[in-house]
């Protein structure tokens, strides 16, 4: 039986088990090969598609590699000034409480220039979802040191490695905001393997579900790679991420149902 099945028998619309969500536009992603931004974009759009919420969602793009996120997501979007996305989201959600509102931000945007906006939106318990992609580097501007660059890690502005005595320590902003009473669900995930992609999608779905229930701020960090900034092939970058980023930024839920995970 199996032997008689031809390619034509299998490749039929009724047999599709996975295809790119229609909420991703046909525009070719501006990201480098292997960059986790593409996967994360798609997961957010898959969740909105599953929630049938295209007409009810407003997204906010940051400044950084994902500055053009609005080119790829087929929803209404706003482009914020660097770091200010949570302030925009605050106003949108308060003015239109029935919409899903999310920000999509990188580590420079969220944890350096936008630290104030992030922490205060979290502390006010705004009913928004923040998707935070942390690759430990400023990708778009050419690989400079980020607030999340690991100790000893090289970047174009710490070419001999981050010397914490001189340059300060990497900021675990996710752990920090998890301690604020306004946050309800805080998790750290990754998208480099199929299993991790599935977990991340569940986390994003959960974050949006909780937003609908007005539980407070939900926050999904995605630890990701920056092949160009780290100067590695995508596959090697993913391995480097597992070996170096994950020990410092361990994956898993940090706060669930408003309670810190012990």
């Amino acid at each position: 039986m199996a032997e008689t099945l031809t390619k034509q028998d299998i490749i039929k619309d009724e047999n599709i088990v996975y295809k790119k969500t229609k909420l991703m536009t046909d525009k070719v992603l501006s990201y480098c090969p292997g960059c986790g931004h593409g996967t994360t974009h798609r997961l957010v759009m898959e969740v909105i598609d599953e929630l049938d919420a295209q007409a009810n969602t407003i997204g906010i793009a940051p400044v950084g590699c994902s500055v053009l996120a609005y080119e790829f997501m087929d929803i209404d979007m706003q482009e914020a000034a660097h770091g200010r996305a949570p302030a925009l989201a605050t106003a949108i959600k308060r003015l239109m409480p029935d919409k899903f509102v999310f920000t999509y931000q990188g580590d420079g945007d969220l944890a350096a220039i936008g630290t104030g906006e992030t922490i205060h939106a979290a502390n006010r318990g705004e009913n928004i979802t923040i998707i935070f992609v942390n690759n430990g580097i400023y990708g778009m501007t050419g690989g400079q040191m980020a607030p999340t660059t690991l100790p000893g890690m090289k970047s174009s502005t710490c070419p001999y490695g981050r010397d914490v005595k001189m340059m300060g320590y990497p900021l675990k902003i996710t752990e920090l905001i998890a301690r604020l009473p306004g946050t309800y669900f805080v998790t750290r995930q990754a998208v480099h393997t199929p299993a991790n992609v599935r977990k991340t999608k569940k986390a994003i779905r959960k974050a949006f579900d909780l937003q609908k229930q007005n539980k407070g701020l939900t926050f999904v960090e995605v630890v990701s790679n920056c092949n160009s900034g780290w100067k590695m092939t995508p596959v090697k970058a993913n391995q480097w991420m597992v070996d170096n980023m994950f020990p410092f930024y361990p994956l898993g839920d940090i706060k669930v149902d408003g309670e810190l995970v012990k």
Binding site: Q78, A81, A87, L88, A91, R94, L95, H120
Partner: peptide, 24 residues
């Protein structure tokens, strides 16, 4: 009408931006 005390003028003007984008 929504009235919100922001954490800074930076945040307040960007809240205005977010709301203005929605035609408010």
């Amino acid at each position: 009408m929504v009235v919100l005390q922001a954490e800074s003028e930076l945040a307040s003007i960007n809240m205005v931006y977010g709301g203005a984008c929605c035609g408010k």
